[in-house]
């Protein structure tokens, strides 16, 4: 049986933990708002990019010799998984869920006899995948020192991917990130980056000709499409990073909320136990005194 002093120390320690989790929850709430604003502000660019790419795609798929970024290399032997996770833990199942999805796909691809390469963005995902796929991780991107995610961060990853692609290092690239549905719901998602999945698939002849009549392209539609496809990769990566940042804070907020509540329950239980024991001690001492007096 723990002594009264031990219990008092225990209660004090749980109280300290509760203060920390409460503070972390509030910090996460503030960061979440900022991350959501950033994701919101980035939306117009991505939307317009999508629109223009969609309409360009309608025209150019009719021609041969389109960019391999769009039509692929014609193979699907080597897969590159870009796994985006957080730099820090203590955010519930956030990192684990993304890694789990990536791991399931990596296992499936390996079984099918494909080569799997992994670029790990964020420390936690790399740690998580290192045990099973340690030698498949070809690159790691550290965003620990980045305070505010900027497009430059996405661009540097995008440039890396393009360089690898041009060197023939992989055929298909897929990005793994957590889609931000709401504060309590984040969905791990896989999105194919290369070859690009564009909103509009092959258009019918009629709309293609009408689009041709509507727009002029400078310099040529192929050149613009090639230019945009490169940018699109960075844009998609940027979107993934922003969604991930918001999801991470949301996950951390609810995880810390739970932790705070658990700590509160624990304090209540411990306090009741502590009081019972204290009263039992008093009663026992009284009995000893009374029985001592009676014995006289």
């Amino acid at each position: 049986m723990a002594s009264l002093k031990d219990m008092r120390v225990r209660i004090a320690s749980v109280k300290a933990t509760r203060k920390i989790t409460k503070a972390m929850q509030m910090v996460a709430a503030a960061k979440l708002r900022r991350a959501q604003d950033a994701a919101q502000a980035a939306r117009p660019y991505a939307e317009r990019m999508d629109k223009v790419l969609g309409s360009l795609n309608k025209r150019v798929t009719n021609k041969d010799g389109a960019s391999p970024l769009l039509v692929g290399t014609g193979k699907d032997q080597t897969h590159l998984l870009v796994v985006m996770t957080a730099e820090r833990g203590l955010c519930g199942g956030f990192n684990g869920n993304i890694a789990k999805l990536a791991r399931a796909d990596a296992n499936r691809l390996t079984r099918e006899g494909k080569t799997v390469k992994i670029v790990a963005v964020g420390k936690k995902g790399a740690d998580n995948l290192r045990r099973d796929f340690g030698k498949n991780i070809i690159d790691r991107v550290d965003l620990k020192s980045v305070k505010n995610l900027g497009f430059v961060n996405a661009e540097s990853i995008g440039d890396k991917l393009l360089a690898l692609f041009e060197a023939g290092e992989f055929d298909i690239a897929t990005m793994y990130f957590s889609e931000f549905k709401s504060v309590i719901a984040q969905k791990p998602t896989a999105l194919q980056l290369i070859p690009a999945k564009l909103p509009e698939e092959k258009a019918t002849g009629a709309t293609a000709t009408s689009a041709e009549a509507v727009n002029e392209y400078e310099p040529s539609e192929e050149a613009i499409l090639g230019f945009l496809l490169k940018r699109n990769i960075s844009t998609q990566l940027f979107r993934g990073l922003l969604e991930n940042a918001a999801s991470e804070q949301g996950a951390r907020m609810s995880a810390m909320d739970n932790a705070t509540r658990n700590a509160g329950d624990m304090i209540n239980k411990l306090t009741i136990k502590f009081n019972r024991q204290r009263q039992a001690n008093i009663t026992r001492e009284l009995i000893e005194i009374i029985s001592g007096a009676e014995a006289l």
Binding site: A38, A41, A42, P44, A46, R48, G150, F151, A223
Partner: peptide, 23 residues
């Protein structure tokens, strides 16, 4: 409208705009 990946920088009604096109 002038849009950067991070946010919308300019959104205004204008009379004319000179743009540095590729060609």
């Amino acid at each position: 409208e002038l849009v950067s990946p991070e946010r919308v920088l300019v959104s205004a009604d204008v009379e004319e705009v000179l743009v540095p096109g590729e060609d």
